[in-house]
Design a protein around this nucleic acid. Structure first.
Lengths: 140, 140
DNA sequence: GCTGCTACTCTCCATGGGGAAGTAGGCACT
DNA sequence: AGTGCCTACTTCCCCATGGAGAGTAGCAGC
């Protein structure tokens, strides 16, 4: 079935346009634009001061402690989906009790920069946002 | 009105861990790590090809069209919260019918880079994620 | 045998988000 | 005059999502 050139052009234009609800990249964007995902990536990405080399493996319980406020359900769910998407690896060590560690893959590491950027932005612009919020609420 | 259990939990949580839970940037991070926020910022940030100068004002209906799949409720809600946080401005022009335009502020522009990065990442790494997903599902 | 530890898994329930219909208010057409 | 339409919401209903807390598996130590 010969695809028409118009259809091809149409497809090329539509290819991976995250604005389109049907595009798979939109679903991916929806998934990574999630607070727990960003937080997990930040945690596994290492300490704030360090560069890319700061990445390290963390155990389930370490992650749970670090991301205070996350429910076990959401943590497990988030980790599973990130594992499925190849952003991190899940390693079970048959010690007693069992030890499960999570570590970023190269793919995860490439997103880690953005996640860290989000966190840095939040910290850096906290004051401005707070000021804007106060001003906005005042003239309400 | 007894001391609500929610308040107690809130306090206990606050005294828990300083790394991510109590950090003031955490609430902000939660807000900006939202799919609609990222999408709105991307849309207002301008076209993909353009640099920072690509930013432009969009009308409510233009945004709704661009972010296929967003409900009016969520769009309004997202825009209002972004306005409150000083990331964008809402301008009502008393034409007939009324025209409401939204435009990024400098603060919003500074986040726009990250939002655009997220979208670009999703589009660029789509194939890898799809491959990882396929491989993962296969060995299930 | 009982407890404790880890990493979940399950169950219940409040909340949040989607869909669709309603609202305001002014012009344009009949 | 009345009907309708346009934009930018707002409101209502309903269901999926997410949080809280309890339960589970498997083994070591007491």
């Amino acid at each position: 079935m010969a695809t028409t050139r118009a259809a091809q052009r149409e497809q090329a234009k539509a290819a991976y346009d995250a604005f389109l609800a049907v595009c798979p990249s939109r679903q991916l964007l929806d998934r990574i634009s999630d607070k727990w995902v960003v937080l997990v990536l930040c945690a596994l990405g290492g300490v704030e001061g360090g560069p890319e080399g700061g990445a390290r493996a963390l155990r389930y319980s370490e992650l749970a402690r670090r991301l205070a406020g996350v429910s076990q359900k959401m943590l497990t769910q988030t980790l599973r989906s990130l594992e499925r998407d190849g952003l991190l690896t899940r390693t079970v060590t048959p010690t007693v009790p069992v030890t499960v560690t999570y570590e970023l893959t190269d793919l995860g590491l490439s997103l880690n920069g953005l996640a860290r950027g989000m966190r840095a932005w939040a910290q850096d612009h906290m004051d401005e946002v707070l000021a804007a919020r106060a001003e906005h609420d005042e003239r309400a």
